[in-house]
């Protein structure tokens, strides 16, 4: 039985996970890509990413591209699984209403 996940259910985190899960499992999204796509501030996005990283749902890869620091984010297998479970749980709520 699919379960709701309290960490993922928050709107911004839900949208972050939706974006990352849409990418190929081996793909990583740039921090600025997520910020622009979700229309959130740097601080807001950073805070939500930290929560997801602490839960083990995303991996943050900090690196340098052309001598500039860049963060690339991807969904972990556990994050993908939890997200799919969360979506299934939401769908079952609608089906049972």
């Amino acid at each position: 039985m699919a379960e709701l996940n309290e960490i993922i259910h928050q709107t911004v985190r839900l949208r972050i996970m939706a974006v990352l899960v849409t990418l190929e499992p081996t793909d990583e999204a740039d921090f600025t890509y997520l910020r622009d796509l979700l229309k959130v501030t740097d601080g807001n996005l950073g805070a939500h990413l930290r929560k997801l990283e602490e839960a083990g749902y995303i991996a943050v890869n900090k690196t340098f591209v052309e001598r500039k620091p860049r963060s690339f984010i991807s969904a972990t297998p556990a994050g993908r699984r939890v997200f799919q479970d969360h979506v299934a749980a939401l769908q079952s709520i609608l089906q049972n209403k």
């Binding site: 709701l4 996940n5 309290e6 259910h9 709107t11 839900l14 949208r15 939706a18 974006v19 849409t22 990418l23 890509y33 796509l37 979700l38 979506v87 939401l90 769908q91 709520i93 609608l94 209403k97």
Partner: peptide, 26 residues
């Protein structure tokens, strides 16, 4: 954790929008 049907509907719509935006951007 309790989620009402309307909240579930809103959450699913937000997910769908984010997925569509990502696909379009790519």
């Amino acid at each position: 954790m309790n989620v009402s049907p309307s909240e579930a509907e809103e959450a699913l719509a937000a997910i769908q929008t984010a997925i569509q935006k990502t696909r379009h951007s790519i």
